[in-house]
Design a protein around this nucleic acid. Structure first.
Lengths: 262, 262
DNA sequence: ACCATATTCTCATTTAACAAGAATACTTGA
DNA sequence: TCAAGTATTCTTGTTAAATGAGAATATGGT
């Protein structure tokens, strides 16, 4: 099982003040969930006064919470926004119904995945095989360069975006076996895009994931639908069947999203 | 400077750019979960260029997601941060254990509540009576001036903070029956603070909530623990018992939090 | 009361944010 | 394929805000 995270999942240099303020939230990780003003100032290379100004904005909006002793942790606003997404997010209003409808046909686990920056993760899960334990806990991030969920997203990214990714992360891309040179990377993804689905077992090696792309609008990839089964139990015919199923359901989701968009 | 200028009448402090950017997220409500750039520009009284700058920061950090047609919705980052809280938030690491330990004694529902700004909501729930259905869904916000959860938080806010609240929200405070004048409001809360718990039935009238304060550090109130039962089934002796229980458990949680703070 | 630490404030300086409109995508439909 | 409409980014001079240093003011512990 499972250790998919590269050491640094953060995107390139933030410049604007707002990005730096939002960047404060990146500090709060599983390993370091509590930060003092001193350590923030040091890490962000800013003066204490500036850190306190940042904290003022983040505390007022509930994104951070005070612990005493100059220490801070993430705040309750996040849980409020989580509910807001659960009750009103277009993707979460559309996809679960489609996933439930194909539950028995999948006979495994389904993951609804989304991405931002260099991270991919599940935001909703539908299970029918209790034996399957994926590493994709809701909200747990993985590299955009690993997993079927990621690959089908990459494959549908605009090539301008892909080019930038390749220039900035050639090392990670090579390490993930996605090619060492731009034409190789591009052509590999082009093939995935043409096939429509990505199939992989690189996060949980005993499982197989079959991922199809979800579009928020034509050409705007916003996530993926992944069907997960136990690899040893899946024949080539099963894979074909599941691919067609994933593709069809993902298209249904995309279609409904494009309607909901307006 | 006392003159006719309305400068003193503007209660809102000057807003920083970062606060305005964070404020964009406030637009996304259950009733209006999708916003176009045009409508954001209109509502925030900013130019398109400015809105696009804001969006750049919010999209890069995953807080917003694009839907096509110039429309945006909340983004996946929120779900990632929700997980980060579930696995590493000090309050969520400490409180559920204490709540589980008193499950049978409570024989009802327990709510772990937090607040920011003028909102209070539950962030975790422990149930032992399946008949009880509170309105406090995880993350659903209520006014800081209603409910036992709120009242015990208010009662433990620094009086400077309270004074500001009273000046800015006298109407809401009066409507909630918390007094029409500052001394009345102050003394009412002082009494609640002295008692240690707040008891109310003003959100779900058939239920009774008994709330005790949770402190992140001495004098820093960060939330409340609420014991909920069916009102008609609770005697005065039960209320006394539950008050002592809530107070004791909330103190345990606070004590462990203060340790965890460092 | 004292000291140590946390937070806010003041002010001169640097830097980014801003609006308006031009320029560039990107879509769609003929 | 081109043309028209919309979405987004890019320019510019100007304005307003962000910044760091250090002083000032809480705040908490002994």
């Amino acid at each position: 099982m499972a250790d998919g995270e590269p050491s640094d999942l953060s995107v390139a240099d933030p410049v604007s003040t707002s990005s730096r303020v939002l960047g404060v939230l990146d500090l709060f990780t599983e390993a370091e969930p509590v930060w003092t003003t001193e350590r923030m100032a040091e890490r962000l290379a800013a003066s204490r006064a500036t850190i306190y100004r940042y904290l003022q904005a983040l505390m007022a909006s509930g994104f951070l919470s005070q612990l005493g002793g100059g220490a801070y942790a993430l705040g309750p606003r996040i849980i409020e926004l989580d509910r807001q997404m659960r009750v009103a997010d277009p993707v979460l209003r559309v996809a679960p119904g489609v996933m439930a409808a194909q539950r028995d046909q999948v006979a495994g686990t389904q993951l609804l995945c989304r991405y931002y920056g260099l991270r991919v993760f599940s935001i909703f899960e539908e299970r029918s095989d209790p034996r399957i334990r994926t590493s994709f806990d809701r909200g747990r991030p993985f590299s955009l360069f690993r997993s079927s969920a990621s690959r089908i997203i990459l494959a549908n990214l605009p090539s301008k975006h892909l080019r930038r990714l390749f220039l900035q992360h050639a090392g990670d891309i090579a390490a993930a076996g996605l090619g060492t040179r731009w034409p190789e990377f591009r052509d590999l993804l082009k093939a995935v895009r043409k096939r429509g689905v990505a199939v992989a077992s690189d996060i949980d090696t005993e499982l197989i994931g079959i991922a199809a792309p979800i579009f928020a609008a034509p050409e705007i990839i916003t996530g993926s639908l992944v069907l997960v089964r136990i690899r040893s139990e899946v024949t080539d015919r099963d894979t074909e069947f599941l691919s067609a199923l994933a593709l069809d359901s993902a298209r249904q989701i995309s279609a409904r999203l494009e309607d909901a968009g307006l």
